[in-house]
């Protein structure tokens, strides 16, 4: 556990030195929001329509931007033989996975937090602090599910010929069970339902996160050994 935190710290240090991945994800998700906001321009005055559209838009933006970052996590390591060095570390292979999950989760979640105010402005929401906290919880659980699967599949696609193209193809069908409750819970929070209104979605998200984390943790070794 401590060792995977070291790996996560290494990744975060490397990332925040350049902020390459963070910036491109952030700008991408902002652009997605703006594109949707332009194409739905006529509806934005009608709050009942916004209520139906906006949660989906938010998750589309986060999913695609997150995928952009995920496809980089292991490509970054494959330069200069870093992955070999990482595999030589005297740690369990699954510690590499856990570390990568931590660092990806932090980077993507930060990206989401920075994007969120733009979303609120573009789609004309006014949220109080309780709703914001709850929204943060939903985003955290949903993003964790996304990262847990995405990190494994990113390692899986590393050695394929068309890795950037293949990652979304593999990731989206597996991700569907986390996107549906994620969007539903987000819609519930934005509509002003409290914690009790979205508890079944939250439970499903948590179960999804746990199951996929456990299984990915077990099979990660096979995904990167060679």
């Amino acid at each position: 556990m401590i060792r995977s935190l070291y790996i996560a710290a290494k990744d975060l240090k490397a990332e925040f030195r350049t902020k390459q991945m963070f910036n491109s994800m952030l700008i991408f998700s902002l652009i997605v929001l703006v594109v949707f906001s332009i194409s739905f321009g006529d509806f934005l005055g009608d709050s009942s329509k916004v209520e139906k559209l906006a949660p989906g838009v938010l998750w589309v933006a986060f999913t695609f931007a997150g995928m952009l970052g995920l496809s980089r996590t292991f490509v970054m390591e494959s330069e200069n033989g870093c992955l070999e060095a990482l595999k030589l570390c005297p740690v369990d292979r699954s510690a590499i996975y856990t570390g990568k999950v931590f660092s990806n989760l932090i980077i993507v979640f930060l990206m989401e937090i920075v994007t969120l105010p733009f979303f609120v402005v573009l789609f004309n929401y006014s949220l109080d602090s309780g709703t914001l906290l709850l929204l943060g919880l939903v985003l955290l659980l949903g993003t964790l599910g996304f990262i847990v699967v995405g990190t494994l599949l990113s390692a899986l696609t590393l050695s394929t010929r068309t890795r950037e193209l293949l990652l979304p193809v593999l990731l989206l069908p597996v991700l569907l069970p986390v996107l549906i409750p994620g969007v539903e819970a987000t819609a519930g929070v934005l509509a002003g339902n409290g914690l009790s209104g979205i508890s079944s979605e939250l439970r499903l998200l948590a179960v999804y996160d746990l199951i996929f984390f456990a299984v990915s943790h077990l099979v990660f070794e096979y995904a990167i050994s060679d």
Partner: peptide
């Protein structure tokens, strides 16, 4: 991984 996602999507769609 894919096998796991099928029953889970069944659950989430039911919700």
């Amino acid at each position: 991984m894919g096998f796991l996602s099928v029953p889970l999507s069944f659950l989430s769609i039911r919700l």
